[in-house]
């Protein structure tokens, strides 16, 4: 059975204003780690709020664990775990108090499901008397995850858990998610960081309330239509501008140390290098490269 089924879900704020969520459909299987990948304002939070029953959709339907998000909201609230975008903890309560509080609210005790949070909790346990407001971003994030997990939810919704967190903490967080997945918990997670997409089983790329594509990260990458090149030269800015003005360029943009570019059919390395030489850029390093999720996202956005 599918853990989450979303069917043509829509949400509009205000009167006839922008559609925050526009006819979105997807399904998440039991035990899957599903990622909603998109920038701020793409509609990720609205989708999460509708699935966790705190927001009513304007159109379409959705079910979590086979339960309707409008009719069966009470039962869904018993079953799911939710970590909203802002880490929702009580800053004036300690780690321990926060955890005990959420355990009681969900009709359980910390001891009952301790095995589930043990791996994460031991990392913050030494500071259990410290108030949540005095914790670092990474520690708050771990505590919030523990609180969302404490009642052993069947589906875990994590809305941008890694935003504003440094790369080291982000990496640790994703490792925790992988271990949770092994415990057979379905996880729906959203992130604006494209590099995190590869850590999901399947992803939905989302922008302006619409889903651009849904697939496994590998398939999303494999479906990239063009040959992608990585180019490099000094100074980079001149190269970027030259490639951008090349008539045969389909897409070109900076990408880390290199720039990425794709060209119209029939245009290869030699043609590009010749053009660049004419533009006075001689020492160019150019090679074919495998697209990343970010390349795919940019490609979808531009077309």
């Amino acid at each position: 059975m599918e853990a989450v089924v979303v069917n043509a879900l829509s949400k509009t704020y205000g009167q006839g204003a922008t559609r925050a969520v526009d006819n979105v459909s997807f399904a998440v299987s039991k035990g899957e780690l599903f990622g909603l990948i998109g920038p701020d304002g793409a509609g990720k939070t609205s989708i999460f709020r509708m699935l966790t029953t705190v927001l009513l959709p304007d159109g379409g339907s959705a079910a979590v664990d086979g339960l309707d998000i409008v009719k069966d909201y009470k039962e869904i609230r018993n079953r799911v775990g939710y970590m909203p975008g802002k880490f929702s903890l009580y800053p004036d309560l300690s780690i321990e108090e926060n955890l005990n509080f959420f355990a009681t609210v969900f009709n359980t005790t910390v001891e009952e499901n301790y095995d589930l949070i043990k791996d994460i909790y031991v990392q913050i346990e030494p500071f259990k008397k410290r108030r949540a407001g005095k914790l670092s971003g990474g520690m708050k994030q771990k505590l919030a995850l523990c609180c969302a997990l404490i009642h052993k939810p069947s589906v875990l919704f994590l809305d941008e858990p890694t935003t504003g967190v440094d790369p080291v903490s982000r990496k640790e967080f994703w490792e925790m998610l992988r271990r949770l997945k092994e415990q057979n918990i379905t996880i729906v997670v959203s992130t604006p960081y494209m590099d995190e997409a590869t850590l999901c089983d399947r992803i939905a790329l989302i922008q302006n309330g619409k889903i651009l594509s849904i697939d496994t990260p590998a398939n999303v990458v494999a479906s990239y239509p063009d040959t992608l090149y990585a180019l490099r030269s000094e100074p980079m800015f001149a190269l970027l501008q030259a490639v951008e003005h090349y008539p045969h360029t389909r897409n070109s943009y900076a990408f880390g140390e290199y720039m990425h570019a794709s060209f119209t059919d029939g245009v290869g390395e030699d043609e590009v290098k010749n053009y660049l030489r004419e533009q006075g850029i001689a020492a160019v390093e150019m090679k074919k490269t495998t697209p990343t999720i970010e390349d795919c996202f940019i490609n979808k956005l531009k077309n």
Binding site: G38, P39, D40, A42, T163, G164, P192, M194, Q207, L240, Y253, A254, E294, F297, I298, L301, K302
Partner: peptide, 14 residues
């Protein structure tokens, strides 16, 4: 550039 989409992020860097 926190939370900005990849295309806009690049325009920003330009």
């Amino acid at each position: 550039t926190g939370g900005v989409d990849p295309v806009t992020r690049r325009q920003f860097w330009n």
